[in-house]
Design a protein around this nucleic acid. Structure first.
Lengths: 131, 131, 131, 131
DNA sequence: GTGGTCTAGACCACA
DNA sequence: GTGGTCTAGACCACG
């Protein structure tokens, strides 16, 4: 899986990493049980510090997306992925609200918004490898 | 309009402020041309630093949501609100993508997602004053 | 509050720090809402790296014992402390089980064990400041 | 005796192994003089590294729980089990203290704590073989 | 060779 | 001045 980071972005690198891995899981590129690169390999591959990768992995583990095995490395959680918890729903709503509010201000209708969501949804779930 | 800030959130206060004002505009609570409190008043009302309010106002102005006049104070942009620029569309997509990816991971269907979006859209546009 | 670390222990420093702070809260030495030293102050006071303190604080925040405010520093959670969750009960049992098993092997009766627990409980809740 | 290991746990495998064997002795499942599987057999049975089993056995021997004979293999110490030494008491207290402190923070009374201890004690000593 | 921990030092966002 | 992020480099526990 190809990781694309924007070093100029104000989004922290470890966050970008988390997002990319979650997208990889969502798109099916990364399947449950599949191994992820070791902290050091990934860090040197994408040219960042291993602590940054470590932080991303640790947070992904805490949220239940991956498992970090003692000395065997990191794998996508084979026991199924995190469920829809009330905390998650709260977080999701508070993330979506300002985005939707701004869209409304800029004159987007509800239908247009839903179309955008549908497009992105499709883009993720129909992503082809290496794309 | 009532501003609700969460001092424990990891979202910066100036961001929360921006979001709340944009939501106010989206809901119709704040109409084009309508005055906003002065930097000093708003800061003392909600008990935060002057600079924080200033930063929020400045960014809102940069994005075209408000106008700041030296003497007349701050008003919601009476000349219409910002349009849908390519930059905005990029920003919106990059914000939505990780949210949608996580939703997919947690087993939400596209329909469920769109329902959530519709709910939040409705919540914003049908908000009653003072609520 | 006095922090006592054992640099020779195989218990990680950040863990010892977490334990000491939790004990401080349990003993009433640290009350809800009370501020904790800044990351840098605490680090230099006890002669460790700020990242180590940061890790301890971050984990304590994740478990709900403290709040980390934007720029105002760290305080003991004023909204009440974490509750008894099923996850906590599982963790607690799996921590206690091997300790109790070893105690049994070494010939301790259930009454003796409970006495030890009572002693430690008393020691924590009746700790006097500076002791 | 059935060994249950959690490869995802952050408790080292050799520690889990030690705990399980001590629990086996505490429950009476493993009696003094009773033989334990050879390092090789146990390792291949539960699918872990030789060194891991070796480390567990070596530590158990150091603490006096088992004896390792060159030819006759490994047996539960027939000369009686380890006693209550001051070192053990220190270790036990330092293990129990943070657990009890957290329990207090989470609002458990001393009676509740002792009930938990009693439950686990009962669970260990009344364990039936093969359970 | 793997992740975990710790140190040291730097820059930035926030208020 | 506060915490947040990132880098660099080191040692250790684990298997």
């Amino acid at each position: 899986m190809i990781i694309q980071l924007d070093m100029q972005s104000d989004v922290p690198i470890y966050s970008q990493l988390i997002n990319q891995i979650i997208e990889g899981i969502a798109s099916g590129e990364l399947k449950p049980g599949e191994p992820l690169p070791s902290v050091r390999n990934l860090a040197s591959d994408i040219g960042i510090n291993l602590h940054t990768v470590n932080k991303a992995y640790t947070l992904l583990k805490q949220e239940g997306f991956i498992q970090i095995h003692r000395q065997r490395g990191v794998v996508v959680n084979p026991d199924g992925l995190p469920e829809i918890t009330p905390e998650y729903e709260d977080k999701r709503s508070s993330q979506l609200k300002p985005i939707i509010a701004e869209a409304i201000c800029r004159g987007m209708s509800q239908e247009q918004l839903q179309q955008i969501v549908a497009d992105i949804h499709h883009e993720i779930t129909h992503k082809k490898k290496g794309e």
